[in-house]
Structures are given as C-alpha cells and as structure tokens.
C-alpha cells in the first residue's frame, strides 16, 4: 500500500478548499482592472451593425476558463448589435465555438446568417490568417453548416479584413501571436484577445506596443467583464474558489518556507 506523504495531504487540502468554496453560494466583489475596462470600451466603441471576427483558438482542456470569458465577450457583442463571424484556428475549438455562439445568439434572439455566421475550422493557422486577408470567401467557400458563403446576407459586403472592425481571438496558447504577426502586421486589422490567465503576461509587450488592442484574461477577467455587463456568469461564480485556492497555495508556500528555514537552522538540510 502506498504510504501517505505530505503531498497527499496537500492534494486533499486543495480538493477540500475548492469543493467547499464551490458549494458556498457566495461571489466576492471584483474591482475592474484597467485592461478589462479597455476591452469593454473597445467593444462598446464599435457602432451597431459593425462586424467582428471571433476566433476560437483554444483546446478543449481550457474550456472551464475559456467558456466564461467567451460567453461574456459574445454577450457584450450581441447586446450591442454587433454582427459576428465565428472561426476556429484549432480543430478542438470548432465545435465549442459553434455551441457558444449558438447559445448566446439564442439568448439575444439573433438569426444565423443575418446577425452571425460560423465559418468553422481552417487547418494551418498562418495560412488561414493570411488567406483571409486576401479573401475570406475564398478561404471559407462554405460555412460550418455547409452553406455557401454568398448565401448569408450579412456576408454580402464582407471579403477582407478591411470590411470588418476587428478580430477577437479567444485563446489558451500562442495563436493570438499569429493574429498579431500576420493579421495586424500584414493587413492592419485590429486584434484583441480573451486569454487564459497563464497566457496574459505573454501578450503584455504586444498590448504595450499597441499591436494588440485589448486583453481580458483568466477567470478574474471574466468576472470583471461580467461585472461591467451587470450580469452573472461562470467568472463571478468561480472567483471564490479561485481566491480560496490562491490563498491555500500562499499558505503552503509560507509553511514550506518555515519548515525549510527551521530545517536549515537545525543543520538538517541546506538545499
């Protein structure tokens, strides 16, 4: 039988912290950060009827964090009567993206083909971004549902990035970089991103240089965005569990250091 070690207690503790916090029906208040406000202001600044590309550039593994972010951004766009074109640069994001767009569109009584279209997945992300800059209709002759590009009234006057207001990449990795390096640098399209928390600092230089319009990041970003929209959602719901687990990790760090220095002062270990 496996001997129970300190690691197992740490695992059990984290499980208990997350489970109990999820069971409590309480959401801590969140102050909106400047970067989330910027993202909100960007979407808010777009006139009704303008078109955004929402690109689902994530894998299935990050869905618990991506879903609240994506829903908040989609709800904001639909609420402001912005027309949406859905794409996916990773195959795993394709089905997820369609479901999220469909769900949000139903909430706001939006019609497929008129208010939103889902073009789906295109392999080879760099090629997809570059060729959409030349011609979106040529890159996606048919949409995710198998309908031809020209069938959709909202796509009638849209064929390149010049015809859209920007791209919001919902990503858990480096794919937003390609939107910046090819979409923005080559074609000048405005790029924003909804990112998992782990990826936010990766994009700070792009945000600072203005190559990236705005960022909303992580579960906290989702909670802040929901607050700005004055709605509930997965971000707000998950903040207590995230805060509790962060505090738990901090307590572990302190405990680990106390034990380490005690061991070192007693001469039982210096590494």
């Amino acid at each position: 039988m496996t001997k129970i070690t300190s690691r197992h207690y740490v695992f059990a503790g984290l499980f208990a912290v997350v489970t109990v916090s999820m069971m409590l029906n309480y959401s801590p208040d969140t102050v909106v950060s400047a970067e989330t406000q910027k993202m909100y202001d960007f979407v808010e600044s777009l006139p009704a009827g303008s078109t955004l590309i929402i690109s689902f550039d994530h894998e299935a593994s990050s869905l618990p964090e991506i879903r609240p972010l994506a829903l908040a951004v989609l709800r904001h766009a639909f609420r402001n009567d912005i027309k949406l074109i859905g794409t996916a640069l990773l195959s795993e994001g394709t089905g997820v993206g369609y479901r999220l767009m469909q769900q949000t569109a139903n909430e706001f009584n939006k019609s497929y083909g008129v208010d939103y279209v889902y073009l789906g997945f295109k392999p080879q992300y760099i090629a997809a971004i570059l060729s959409m800059g030349e011609s979106i209709s040529r890159t996606y002759p048919v949409d995710y549902l198998g309908k031809t590009y020209s069938e959709h009234p909202m796509l009638k006057d849209i064929d390149t990035y010049n015809d859209i207001a920007g791209v919001i990449s919902i990503a858990d990795g480096s794919l937003t970089t390609h939107w910046i390096e090819y979409g923005n640098a080559r074609f000048g399209v405005r790029i924003s991103a909804a990112l998992t928390a782990a990826m936010v600092t990766t994009y700070d230089p792009y945000l600072s240089s203005g190559q990236l319009e705005a960022i909303v990041g992580g579960l906290r970003g989702a909670a802040e965005y929901e607050k700005l929209l004055n709605i509930g959602g997965g971000g707000k719901r998950g903040m207590l569990a995230q805060t509790a687990s962060h505090l738990y990790v901090l307590i572990l760090v302190i405990a680990g250091n106390v034990m380490y220095f005690r061991r070192r002062s007693s001469g039982r270990g210096n590494t």
């Binding site: 300190s6 503790g13 499980f15 738990y248 990790v249 572990l252 760090v253 680990g256 250091n257 380490y260």
Partner: peptide, 15 residues
C-alpha cells in the same frame, strides 16, 4: 493545480 500546490509547498523556497 494539484501539482502546483504540491510544488509550492515542497520546492518554492527562498534558498
């Protein structure tokens, strides 16, 4: 998350 918690306890020391 579990491995991060464990690593924080066992390895994240001010050496």
């Amino acid at each position: 998350a579990f491995f991060v918690a464990s690593a924080a306890f066992r390895g994240f020391h001010a050496r």
